[in-house]
Amino acid sequence: MVGSGRLAGKRVLITGTAGGQGAAAQAAFVREGARVIGCDVQAGAAERTAAALAEQGFDVAGDTVDLADAAAAARWVDESAERLGGIDVLYNNAAGAGFAPFADMSLDLWKHVLHVELDIVFHTTRPAWRHLLATGNASVINTASMSGERGIAPLGQAAHSAAKGGVIAMTRTLAAEGAAHGVRVNAISPGFVKSPATDKFVGDELRAFQMGMHLIRRPGTGEDIAHLAVYLASDESAWVTGQNICIDGGVTAGFR
């Protein structure tokens, strides 16, 4: 079912659609008329979230893909582009994680975090780039973090901050390279968003600390982030590129 919504007919790839922000975005995009192929590293999970929407008549599919494997990521992008007939939007939502105080951070952990939070953005965007250039009116949305904008001691996030700062810098450079070809590239930097991933790493004490930094004293939701992603994917944001938009309940307000 392709409707007449804000993303009507747009061909979209979304990574990390097993749950949380990715699943929320997938649902929001198809309800706005997009055709979506999602993926996730959890076996069968992207297929399940897509199937639930497909049963409602939406044009959506999901695949199990380990984006940390560059060859597998490229294969997924190219096969998806063939299935959709091109790519209008690439939403790099998926990311891994890893935290430790810097004094305890091993080189292996440092490399792991950069691989699953920064390298995987390259793994999908590089093969998608030629498809996006061919479209001539395309949007790339990268998921960064408020951690790429400010330091937060208790989480032990030196590697995470470095990776997300790299995503922000990459976003700006790709926006500069893509502008002449009609490709817009923007980043979303969420604050603390309640999700299965954050529940795994953030206990009650750290959650309270995070909430103490928010002007709006509640965690974000996947739907909060999805609304912004829909805007950046749509033609409503045709004059928006190279931006890192913080959606964080006010954490970064006045920080600079």
Rank of each mutant, 00 (worst) to 15 (best):
A138T: 06
G148C: 09
A176H: 06
V230R: 02
A253R: 09
I225K: 09
E223T: 15
A54G: 15
A153S: 11
G249N: 11
T15I: 04
G5Q: 03
A94Y: 08
V89T: 14
N92S: 05
C246I: 01
V202E: 00
L107T: 15
H214L: 14
E236N: 10
G203A: 06
A179S: 13
A51C: 05
G20R: 04
D59G: 04
D88L: 00
I37C: 06
R150S: 10
A52K: 13
A153P: 03
L174E: 11
I120C: 15
F102L: 14
Q210F: 14
N244K: 00
G96C: 12
A95P: 05
T49C: 03
L228R: 10
G191H: 05
G57K: 11
T198D: 13
S161L: 02
Y91K: 01
V121F: 00
A103L: 11
D40M: 07
T198R: 04
F209E: 12
G249M: 05
V60D: 04
P101N: 10
S139W: 13
T173W: 08
T17G: 02
G182A: 12
E236V: 13
R184P: 13
H214W: 07
L232D: 08
P127C: 07
Q157N: 14
A74M: 04
R126T: 04
S145T: 05
K194H: 11
E149C: 08
A144M: 12
L132P: 14
A43R: 14
E55C: 01
K164M: 05
G19V: 05
G19S: 10
N93L: 02
T252Y: 08
R35D: 00
V30A: 06
A73G: 01
